[in-house]
Computed example of a mutant assay.
Amino acid sequence: MSFNSTSSSYLQENLIHSILTTISTNLTTLLTQTAFSISDIYDPRITRPFALICLFIGSIGNSISFIVFTQKQLRRHSTFRYLAYLSIVDLIVLYLGLGNIILRDYFLFDIREQNLFLCKFHTFLTYVTTHLSSWILTIVSIDRAIACTIVQLDKRFSRPKSADRIFLAMCITISLINSHILLFMGSKQQIIISSINNISLYKDIIICTHNTSEIYFQFFEKPYSIIDLFSYVLIPFVIMTICAGIIAYRLFFSLSNTTMNKRIKGKTSKGTRRAKQISYMLFILNLVFIILLAPIVIGQLFQDLNQEHHYRLFNSITLLLSYSNHALNFVLYGVASPQFRLTLKQLLGISNNYITRRRAQTVGFFTSTGV
């Protein structure tokens, strides 16, 4: 009897040990497959160093921009208030995207695969913030164009309170457009990780993809890809280009007949120099915007969503370019602005207060248009 009991105990221990060994092996295999799938779309040799560098530069640049644009002398102007919002939105974009890439590439930890809520919410926020970033730049161009042309509308549109309301309206609209992600993105599946002597062990895994149903996949593959393409790149670029053309025409070809000429009273030459800086800045913004995001447009038009792993190098390059747009925006709309530089020097205590006041007075009218 004692022998049978000992034998039974020994068999149970062997069975438990065998099960644990199998579980460990299967989990190792699962982690290895997960790691492979993470790097399948992008090349980690490119994304690893880029994510760290870009996140570091973008964090410093956007933080400095937000501090400068929220100073008292700047935040009372609508354009600078938009740019303060843009700094925060770009910072969120970088941490949502690059932060998750760093966790995946270095620690094999994917935020979206932890649970279904994080899958939906992280994907939703990523789309909302990237679209919002493009549209803030678009509103900046519209704000400048209105400030140079329509005086009556300028008094109502180009105000700080109006900027706050417009930004809130954009947040709500873009969130509603992308709300389907919260409803249909991702699924939870149960897989068998061990089966011994009719004893099966299961594990829940999160599949964070749009391929949750045939209907949603067809919607995401065609209609929504077109919506995303137009709302993220094409429509903002067209509007920015039109606004830049309007500003250039008003400033270079009809300056003597505009209300602007009456406002500045004898300071036309200085005003023209400042006005040209506005147009140059808008041109650079538009040019860099389209150069950095054009590859994404090409990828969305010609890539099959199910065949993304065939374009690892191309996807890695487009990833690098798109996040550079969010990380380096402060260089384009901040460092190129005399008002930005003056305020930054004042914050750092390295500017002459008298010279700062004189220069601020010189560009006083043009602060409503963003430089």
Rank of each mutant, 00 (worst) to 15 (best):
I199N: 06
S213T: 06
S200Y: 09
G186A: 05
I206T: 01
N178G: 05
S213L: 13
C171W: 07
I181N: 00
N197H: 10
T173Y: 08
H180N: 14
S187G: 07
I181E: 03
D204I: 08
S200V: 06
H180C: 13
I207M: 10
I191T: 04
I207V: 11
M185D: 03
S195E: 12
N197I: 04
I192G: 01
I206K: 11
T173Q: 10
H180V: 10
S175T: 07
T209F: 01
N178Y: 06
S187T: 00
S194F: 00
I199T: 10
E214S: 14
E214G: 05
H180S: 13
D204A: 03
E214Y: 00
K188M: 12
K188F: 02
E214F: 00
S194V: 11
I174C: 05
Q189S: 12
L201W: 14
I181G: 00
C171S: 14
E214M: 11
A169K: 03
K203G: 01
K188V: 13
S200R: 07
K203E: 04
S187L: 15
I177C: 05
I207Q: 11
I199D: 09
K188I: 08
I206H: 08
M185Y: 15
N198Q: 11
H210E: 06
I199V: 11
I205T: 03
C208K: 00
G186T: 00
M170H: 03
S175I: 02
M185S: 08
I199L: 09
N211F: 13
C208H: 02
Q190E: 11
L201S: 05
I206V: 15
L176R: 09
S195T: 02
L168S: 13
T209I: 02
T212P: 00
L176T: 12
T212L: 12
S175C: 14
L176F: 15
I207W: 08
I181Y: 15
M185I: 07
I177Y: 14
N197V: 03
C208D: 01
L182P: 01
T209L: 04
Q190I: 14
N211T: 03
S194R: 02
N211Q: 15
I199P: 02
Q190L: 07
N197G: 11
H210Q: 14
I174A: 04
K188G: 02
I181C: 07
H180I: 06
Y202L: 06
T212A: 14
T212S: 14
I177T: 04
I193F: 02
G186R: 00
S179G: 15
C208N: 10
Q189W: 02
I191A: 06
N211M: 15
L176S: 13
I193M: 07
I196R: 04
D204R: 06
I196V: 13
L182H: 10
M170L: 15
L176H: 13
S175L: 03
I199F: 11
M185E: 07
H180D: 05
K203M: 08
I174T: 06
G186L: 01
S194Y: 01
I177S: 07
I207Y: 13
L168R: 09
S194I: 04
I207C: 10
I199G: 11
N178Q: 10
I177M: 07
I192S: 08
I192C: 05
F184Y: 14
E214D: 10
L182D: 05
I192K: 04
E214H: 01
I199M: 12
I199Y: 09
L183Y: 10
L182A: 12
I174S: 05
I191E: 08
N198L: 08
C171Q: 13
L176Y: 13
L183A: 07
A169E: 01
L201Q: 10
Y202W: 04
I205E: 01
